[in-house]
Amino acid sequence: MSSNIKRAVSLYSYQEEFFLKKMNLEDCIAAAAATGATGIEIVGEQSVPGCPKLPSDAFVDQWFGWMDKYKVTPVAHDMFLDYNKKKGHYWSDDEAVESFKQDIRFAHKLGFKVIRVIVNTTPQIIEKVIPFAEDHDIKLGIEVHAPWNINSAWMERHWDVMERTGTKHFGFIPDMGGFCRRLPRVQVDRMIRNGADPEIAKFVCEQHEKGIMAEYTIFEVSRMSNRRIDMAVAELSRHNTFVNPLSLVPHIDRIVHIHGKCLEMLEDCTEYSIPYNEVVAVLLKHGYNGYIATEYEGNRHIQDVYEVDSVEQVRRHQQMLKNLGCGI
């Protein structure tokens, strides 16, 4: 079974092995390609020395050489706005716009067609940048990241820009972390190891699975414990939201890319907390035809007790997407 949904891997997924120098950039690209993914996503400042400066011509040649060698395509670069790089100086909109344009130049030079725009970017800044993105044929996608969802007031303001400008170069990038029906077990277990009360953790998980609003759970936990770590467990329910995947349907044509967040891929190639089968079914039915890029982020929750195996976690995620009908 195949569809028009394509599969990519964000090299961010391999951050543990990359930092520990067990894998270099080429190894990361090769590992992504070995899963059958055809697209590559990066955080520029993580993967490319010198970023945000434009990469050298030698690097660009090597980069496209790797793309050819491993038969993959540059898909997305993740941008950030470093509003407060100098103590006491908060960027003006003009400074933010200039930084954003540099990300567009960077992405363009390495062949990326999409930029993941960090969620706190204002609609005003994006509107100022859209003509520059159009000139470089790069689609901007505002990250729809928990606790926001695609129908949040913040996203409505971005939607307004999409509609008003009529541009084809600005849309949404939903992060699958917004579909956590269960709380990620790796996060909860880590907090218990750090001293959280296991009974409170169990209560929070149960409340989340019942669909109880996070604020009510947080209030209940505040009456059970005055310890910060227990409150942090309760707050997991706020930062790992679940919204109905059907919420994507009215915006399906505005979705330019998807972050396939995963924190714990099980041996059977399902994600512990995210019902990917339900979300992908909605995407398939309603004709989403972009990439889903694996973004493994579980390493930070298990690295205190386990050796991280990002390569296997990404492989399982890609296999899951394939099983669900994405890609070849």
Binding site: Y12, Q15, F19, V43, E45, Q46, C51, F80, D82, K85, K86, K87
Partner: peptide, 11 residues
Amino acid sequence: THWYRALPLSC
């Protein structure tokens, strides 16, 4: 640094 993304020295 082991922050996942490069940062300038001013930070």
